[in-house]
């Protein structure tokens, strides 16, 4: 928010100030956590462990990317966790049960994600349900459908040649594809959020929905588009998760949505909407995974790991509030 006198400096700070500060803050947090654990445990910085952290980040991270769009509009998406499971189950149905080609099955999984987003978007825009309620209902529907469709039993991809390579393969030697997919998805999400109409309108709607509508933006239609984008990421997360486990686990998924939302919030995105960055979300997701991993390496019991994550969320958002307070 600093006013800069010279045009040159002004340009240099274009992305600076507000947006960058919140990312620097989150990034510093990540570095501090990394430094702490590498001192605390000699194994922490081993590549297999770092790879583990990145792998653990990938699925939640992809979900969080989608959630960032919805949160940018001032909405919330509670259906990403079980929605991801439904996408994973449907991908299994397409590939393992029906026997569609790999490519088609994966696209089918993404399409189910888009469909979930479409229904969420229509419910929010045209039935005027609050996003919390619309996606809470979808969370339950997706959970139920996953169980019904799978007959409550896991579906295995063992006979689908190459499916496990989606996550476990290494196009770049040493780096699992799941991580690569996450990073590529993040770049795509970043471009969509900052450079396309859907992203810009998401931020405008989050900033002031009424003014955006009066300005001639068809807010209802764009909201549907934004929920569909979020759904596509849910679908992608479902495919990657299925590939990692080499199976669709219909009982999984509940609670993942909160992990995703936590990652978004730690990254500095405002739940009130209007302010969101993808880089922040990526860092947020990394912080969550690093923390869990580090605490596990230090043999901290799982229950206490959750407590620690909770405290980090409080600290992260408090730091963000402090910064905002000074901004005024």
């Amino acid at each position: 928010m600093t006013t800069t006198p010279t045009p040159a400096r002004r340009r240099a700070l274009r992305f600076g100030n507000r947006q960058q500060l919140q990312q620097i803050l989150a990034f510093t947090g990540l570095v501090v956590i990394f430094a702490f654990f590498s001192f605390a445990s000699p194994y922490f910085l081993d590549w297999p462990n770092v790879k583990g952290i990145l792998l653990a980040t990938s699925v939640t991270g992809i979900m969080a990317l989608g959630a960032t769009f919805v949160i940018a509009t001032g909405g919330i998406d509670l259906s990403v966790g079980t929605g991801m499971t439904l996408c994973s189950v449907m991908t299994a149905v397409f590939l393992a049960n029906i026997g569609l080609p790999l490519f088609v099955g994966v696209l089918g999984g993404l399409a189910i994600g888009a469909l979930i987003g479409l229904v969420n978007g229509l419910n929010v825009s045209y039935l005027r349900l609050p996003p919390f309620i619309a996606t809470l209902a979808m969370m339950m529907i997706a959970q139920g459908l996953s169980l019904v469709i799978s007959g409550t039993k896991p579906i295995y991809f063992s006979d689908v040649a190459g499916f496990d390579q989606i996550a476990a393969g290494e196009l770049i030697p040493g780096l699992p594809n799941a991580v690569l997919i996450f990073f590529v998805a993040a770049i795509v999400a970043g471009v969509v959020l900052s450079k396309t109409l859907a992203g810009r309108y998401a931020l405008s709607i989050g900033s002031n929905e009424e003014a955006t509508a009066i300005s001639g933006v068809n807010v209802r239609r764009w909201k549907v588009v934004i929920y569909v984008i979020a759904g596509l990421f849910t679908g992608l997360a479902g495919v990657v998760l299925g590939s990692r486990l080499n199976s669709a686990q219909p009982g999984l998924g509940l609670g993942y949505e909160l992990e995703a939302i936590a990652a978004v919030v730690i990254g500095g995105t405002s739940l009130r909407g209007g302010k969101a960055t993808i880089l922040g979300t990526v860092i947020g997701a990394l912080i969550m995974a690093t923390l869990t991993n580090g605490l596990r390496i230090m043999s901290i019991p799982q229950e206490w790991q959750r407590v620690a994550v909770g405290i980090v969320i409080i600290l992260a958002v408090y730091a963000d509030q402090l910064r905002r307070g000074k901004e005024a």
Binding site: L203, S204, S207, N208, E210, A211, T212, I214, G274, K275
Partner: peptide
């Protein structure tokens, strides 16, 4: 403020 501007942008 309500119908015209994105105040935060």
């Amino acid at each position: 403020k309500r119908y015209g501007l994105l105040l935060d942008q």
